[in-house]
Nucleic acid binder design. Sequence first.
DNA 1: TATGAATGAGCCTTCATTCAT
DNA 2: TATGAATGAAGGCTCATTCAT
Lengths: 222, 222, 222, 222
Amino acid sequence: MESPHVSGTAKPKARRGRPPEQGLAERRRRQLVESACAVFASRGYEAASISDVAKHAGVGQGTVYRYFESKRTLLDHVLDHSVERMLDAVRTGATHERPHSLEEFTAQVRSIAERLFELIEAEPDLIKLVVVEATAIDDELKARLVGLENTLTMMMASYLDHGVREGWLRKGLDSRWAAHAMNSLLVPGFLLALRGEATPERRARYVDALVSFIVYGMRGPR
Amino acid sequence: MESPHVSGTAKPKARRGRPPEQGLAERRRRQLVESACAVFASRGYEAASISDVAKHAGVGQGTVYRYFESKRTLLDHVLDHSVERMLDAVRTGATHERPHSLEEFTAQVRSIAERLFELIEAEPDLIKLVVVEATAIDDELKARLVGLENTLTMMMASYLDHGVREGWLRKGLDSRWAAHAMNSLLVPGFLLALRGEATPERRARYVDALVSFIVYGMRGPR
Amino acid sequence: MESPHVSGTAKPKARRGRPPEQGLAERRRRQLVESACAVFASRGYEAASISDVAKHAGVGQGTVYRYFESKRTLLDHVLDHSVERMLDAVRTGATHERPHSLEEFTAQVRSIAERLFELIEAEPDLIKLVVVEATAIDDELKARLVGLENTLTMMMASYLDHGVREGWLRKGLDSRWAAHAMNSLLVPGFLLALRGEATPERRARYVDALVSFIVYGMRGPR
Amino acid sequence: MESPHVSGTAKPKARRGRPPEQGLAERRRRQLVESACAVFASRGYEAASISDVAKHAGVGQGTVYRYFESKRTLLDHVLDHSVERMLDAVRTGATHERPHSLEEFTAQVRSIAERLFELIEAEPDLIKLVVVEATAIDDELKARLVGLENTLTMMMASYLDHGVREGWLRKGLDSRWAAHAMNSLLVPGFLLALRGEATPERRARYVDALVSFIVYGMRGPR
DNA sequence: TATGAATGAGCCTTCATTCAT
DNA sequence: TATGAATGAAGGCTCATTCAT
């Protein structure tokens, strides 16, 4: 930062004292968000206490408040973090930029569904926290999550419209509704996983059925 | 559960003097459970206070403790009560004892789905309490609810097996999985309704799609 | 309250349970306000804790919150209570309704000053809390206390104007300023008392000097 | 207190190499005390945090603890500093070493009062901190401040005794009491200023009245 | 020496639960 | 039996103080 002024009069403000250990703050924040994910997910947001989170992270409670101004703020970060992971799953699954045939579309849907399943299986409670519990905490939060889902739905809808224009999805498709249904249909899979009954085989079958349903609905009865 | 009604209508056999208010206790319990349903549903279990429940029921707080030993116990009863209502919806929807063709089966599924939608739209918060919030409160509770869903799944699975035996569902159907998928598919609809976006039109379309999906999966690709 | 309806249908709402012990609430409130007076006065408002107040009153902390919704509310009541006592002192001192000569006026001033001295000597810290510390806590509170003093000043000013009209106070007296000065001059006496050095003799002398000053200023140089 | 300034300007006697920053510690202390004055005065002692003081002084919080062992100790120094400023005001007002007539005495009293008013108007919150808030913090502190006022009173009393001996104050004057009354009479003015209602005109009138009162009391009824 | 990260005691407040009446 | 007054254990949050660097 101050490298250009090697011999200038702008003395570098004589950093005294313990150097702020670059990156520590960010590491701590991450560590705390992760602990909060675990604790909020397992006990629920209301029932979880800041002291639980601190204990899980191995720090004093006061430390939590150096990095997050309130329990509620911490939740915001937990949600951001979790949503980010979900979006990563979607991005990883979407290998082709845009599909150009029903087959490519189907393959992408399958791939995304499988990534999401993996995430759900890895962190069932966390996903539940984001997808369901959070909407009950706060109106502001509910609005945020609804907005997020709307964004996702819109993205998916534009995908579908693209398919309609290219001719591999039927004309007259209610793309907004279809997109919403697709989002929604992920939830049962989430519940399946949540119960821990999702053998790879069953999971594959669920994805198959889901894909079939989507394609069936998208393509129309013929 | 309802041990008293052993022999039909069981009129209390006109006794002399003031009847000892048999059943008063039971009435109070019911009244309290209903108040608790309302209060827990509207504020969430953690945020609701016993004093809210008592006020809603028009009794003193102490009285609550004459009938339920703790807030947690009261929740147990709220859940039982709500589950009972959901089962009623299912029972009401299942007009024929058992279907004997794919068409009857489909009609029943549709009918049940519609009853459940009605319930969800009538009491979205209560359903949310049962389906979502409750599992985050307690491991014991979570186990109970999972058990409940397993029971439902088993009931449904035996239905499906019956269809397989009668030949209108395909041989080799993984009935346990199929039953579970059917249960799970209610959830997106539940979310739809919960968000208040369920116009009658969308709801109908959702039920259609749901039924299609189920039938599609049950009957196989051909 | 319900005495008129001796044999009417308006059944008195069947008071069940422990009777609310008429007046208990008011007694508790008083008891708590008095404890709060003592504790706030001796430690200062900020440094005093609710738990101190509760301990002083011999109740649990939770009990305080049954009667006052916050620490701040409790302070409001402490101030009201203290102001009331100060006003009582003034009222007790003001034996004649309105003075009709300089002598009567002087006698009343002396009498009021002496009542106030008694109060100050009995509760020096409490008076300090009201007169000085409170104005530093809150803008809303400061406004209230300034308003109170303005009211007192106005009352006193109207007294003085009355004297001017009746001719025993000089024409052209700045009654508003004079009233304010009189109020202010009580404070030194308060400090005198606060230090515990106020022998009856010195106190009398102070009142003499005060009265002389007031009369001197009121009557003018002639 | 200021032990270094033994022989006048005391220049540090040009030494070789970097001077060991003698006095740096003392400068830091002063800087911190000044910041603490500002912060304690504006927020009140209890509500002010060490971190506020450190920020105001432009140092880290830890640094404060290198110079003062606790927040309480810092307050001690703030009070010393403020008292010193008040004494300066008195000293500046007292132009003649000792008055030798009632007129000179009166002029000095007026001059001192005006200096104090200036100080109060310049730093009302700081004065309030010293005069009011501090006595509520601690018994030890209260004792110190009472002791300080006693010292002032004694000084003033010796002044008055001097006047009695020289004959321009009446024999039999209770000098200790009179001195105390004079101190106390400053307080109403302080309150006037504190409330921001002190126009120059009112202030002049208040000083007039104060001086009159003092002279009146000192000289006796004749 | 200066720093600021870390800590835990303590505050205000809420509320499930108990119990005298 | 019904009541609501009383309670104390938490919980979220602040901040004086310590200490590794």
